[in-house]
Nucleic acid binder design. Structure first.
Lengths: 129, 129
DNA sequence: GGCCTATTTTAGTGTTTACTCATTCATCTA
DNA sequence: TAGATGAATGAGTAAACACTAAAATAGGCC
């Protein structure tokens, strides 16, 4: 069966109205929602969420958030049970996603969180039950 | 070289102090950050983020958020370019992660977003540049 | 320049994920 | 109760991911 037929049966069940006009109207409403949901930010948002959706990367962002300042790559090494290479990968992904900024200081590289990263962590903390 | 040696060189570069005591102190500070970052919520937070970090699932949550109420499974079908099975999988994952609630209504199932889901979307919207 | 060190990048590999298809479960109705 | 429909679940698979190890890049110092 097509998804439109099912929608028609659903609308019949819900409101008694079962004409094609009502189905078309509901479809139009839904497509409006879809258009509003699927704007150009969708891809970027999913990238940001993907970047945070990993234990190593999430922990890096958390540590930086709590540190409330910048940390050197070498300071993560003792805290994370992965190779330096993995830490560097993680830092690059987070930076690309807009969750961290990177700064050179001589031969050291320092990272800090962005406002976006902080906003997400605050939202997570604030919605925990 | 060990990560502690590198940390020692870093602290020397930064502050001139290069004794073992300073290194030990900084290590203790870092481990405190790590402990604060790695609480019992870490795993749950990463699950939530993983659930949202997928275009299909993100779009479902967005649509429900904009709809500002509940929608039937059958209403997603016309909007998403995946099978009904994939939609059902996605809805279950989101529900398990605590981002949606599910309600039976006769033979139809209706979903709505949780406060946690709304908080995350608001944080994303509010931190967009 | 030549060497050492901090970090990044590239390549390769085992694991996880996101989907489809087929099947099962649940609810309504004839 | 049988049949039909809505939705969930299980199995299988191709693609994406997260890591390691090795090589490359880049800065500081002799």
């Amino acid at each position: 069966m097509s998804s439109t037929e099912r929608l028609q049966r659903y609308l019949s069940d819900e409101s008694g109205s079962c004409g094609d006009a009502e189905v078309a109207q509901r479809l139009a409403e839904l497509e409006e929602l879809d258009a509003a949901a699927g704007g150009p930010d969708l891809e970027a948002d999913v990238s940001v969420l993907s970047a945070l959706a990993n234990e190593t990367r999430y922990k890096i962002v958390r540590i930086l958030h709590i540190a409330d300042g910048e940390l050197c790559v070498c300071e993560f090494s003792p805290l994370l049970d992965v190779s330096d290479s993995a830490i560097s990968h993680a830092l690059s992904q987070l930076t690309d996603a807009g969750l961290l900024t990177r700064r050179k200081d001589g031969k050291w590289r320092k990272y800090r969180t962005t406002a976006r990263a902080n906003a997400l962590l605050v939202a997570l903390d604030g919605s925990r039950k």
